[in-house]
Each structure stands twice: as structure tokens, then as C-alpha cells.
Computed example of a mutant assay.
Amino acid sequence: MSSREPTLADVARLAGVSLTTVSRVLNNRGYLSEKTKRRVADAIETLGYRPNSLARALHGMRTQTVGLIVPTVSLPFFGELAVEVENALAEAGYRILICNSMGRAEREREYLSLLVGNRVDGIISGAHNEGLQEYDTIRMPLVTIDRDLSPSIPNVRCANEEAGAAATRALLEAGSRHPVLLTSRSGLHNLREAGYRAEVEGAGLHARVLTVPFDTPTPQRFTMVRDALDEAHALEPVDGVFATDDLAGAEVLEWARTRDLSVPGDLSVIGFDGTETMRRALPHLATIRQPIEEIARAAVSILLGQIDGTLPRIPRDEAGAGVARTVEFAGTLLRGRSLAP
């Protein structure tokens, strides 16, 4: 048995057809008899031939591959998102390359270069780094999930501001008068924070935002959450926490346990994401469930529309100016025992 990988020429030779015919069979182009298709298919199976995706890209062909950039699949939301994106792509005949940026901008740049260099057919980005100018130079199909990169890049997400408001209302309705927000990054782009602030200030209360950076190493993370909550609690007793992800919500529950605060007696807690993983681990944690499957399928649908040419990457208004395309899905409040009745 030969030690080298079989080539397109080997397939053509065994099938008794030209290289062009093999190429046409692989790309389903032009009329070919069923007999010819069968001979080529048999030759491919006999030889164990695998098409070279990079070579196909260099010849202007699709690689049937899409890149997905996420902070890390070890986080339940992004792990389940990756599964749903992969399922939706597989149904359309595409494969996925999953890239974990680990929350670092430089690693995200490296993955962008890798994906573009390997000529994937499109990119879905859900990483959280801001200000990466490399995205402005990418001309291939591109969609983001829960990330405002540019008016020229479609963004698919949960309706975060409305969901953040719903989570905060749940705390207020549970009797909280000193609710705080625990999040990874405060600012204009944090729509969950905007929803929290609107509800708290609308109730005539004081908004307090605690931040623990997204890329904080796991061994240090709980210490930072504990210290932030301790400091806030010392200034004004904390009787409610809206954590913008369920892992942070779990850390709040642990903080309450170590400080002898009963949940929900002394403290009401609500998280965000509502993944299957966290629901199994902490079924009593109230949360806002994101419709992960719907978000994933919408992102894939938009990307495939760009790849096929049926959807423009940059929608235009009547004056011809680029218009940001944002697709939002409503979150669902899941009540749990961490909210006072």
C-alpha cells in the first residue's frame, strides 16, 4: 500500500475519466451520466481519497467549511452554542472549525488569520474582544453572535436589554431594594446592564454595577467575586444580585453560603443563559434562558445566504447607506427557588 495520500489524478486514472470530469463530479457541476458518477464515486471509495480543501479554495471552489470563534467552549453557553451551530451547518453540508480565543485579543487575531488563510467559506464570531480592526478588512461572509462589531456585519443575539430588564424586575418583585449587577464588562455595549439600570432607576433606587473581567483565570475568579460583593455589602446591604451569566450566579450563591446569607430569605439571585448544563447543576437558580438553538440557526442561515449570494452582507437603505442588521430573540424568565416568592 502506498504511503502517500491519493490524489485527484489517481481517482481519474482508476475511474478511467479525465481530471475535469472528476472535478465536475465533486462539485456537482454540469451534466454527467449516473454511470460516470458511480465510477468516480467507486474510485474515491476504493482509494480513500479526501479532497484538499485549500487546493479547492485556490481554484475558486468552496471548502464547505465555516469557522466559529468563541471565547471558550468550556463555558456552558458557548459550548452549547457551538453544538447548535455545528448541527445547523451539518444539515447544510458544511463542516465547522471551532476556535477558542480564551478571551484574548491576540489569539482572536491569530485565528482570524488562520481562517482567512485557509479560505473557509465564512466566519461566525462570538468572541468578546472589542476594537479588532482586522474585522474591517475581511471581505468573506461574516456574522456575529451577541457582538456589535460594525454596521456592516450582521449580529444575532438575545434581546439583551429587554431580558436584563425582566431579570431586574424579577428581583424587585421579590422585594429587593438594594439590587446589584454582577457582570464582566460595564459600558454602552452591555445591553443587559442598560436593562438593569432602567428598571432600578425607574423604581427610584440606586444602580450598582460590579465587574469581574471575562478572562479572569478560574483560580482567581471567585476571590474577585467575593471581594467585590463583600465591599458592596459593607457599604449598603445587598439583598439582590442579577448576574449576567449563570456561572457568575453560581458564584453569588457560594458567596451567600460563606457569609451565612440565606437564599432567598436574605438575598435573591438571578442569572442569565439558562443552558441545559447549568439547569441540571443548579435547578434552583432563577435565570433568563437564551434561545440558543434559534440564535445559532439564524446566524447560520444569514451566513449561508451570504455564501450563496442570496443575502447581501451589507444591507442598504434607500439612500444607499449601510444599515446594521440585528436579529434579536426574546429571552425567557425561568423562576427558581433563588427568588423570594
Rank of each mutant, 00 (worst) to 15 (best):
A163V: 11
D239F: 04
R280V: 13
L229A: 11
R259E: 01
L32H: 10
R316N: 01
G131F: 04
I307G: 03
S74C: 07
N129R: 10
R147Y: 03
G336L: 11
A15G: 11
L339W: 04
P151L: 06
D273A: 01
H59S: 13
H178A: 14
V70K: 01
V22Q: 10
N190F: 03
G202K: 09
N87H: 13
G122F: 12
S150Q: 03
E201M: 07
A340I: 04
G79F: 09
L8D: 01
D146E: 14
S23N: 10
A174D: 00
L75F: 10
G175S: 00
S33Q: 06
A281Q: 05
A299S: 15
N100R: 08
E5P: 08
V85R: 08
E231P: 10
A228F: 08
A296P: 06
R169L: 11
S262A: 15
V209T: 15
V40R: 00
R109L: 13
Y111T: 03
L47T: 02
R107Y: 05
L171F: 04
F78P: 11
G187P: 13
D308P: 07
G126F: 01
G322Y: 02
T223K: 12
G117D: 13
L132A: 00
E293F: 04
E293R: 15
F214H: 13
V180L: 00
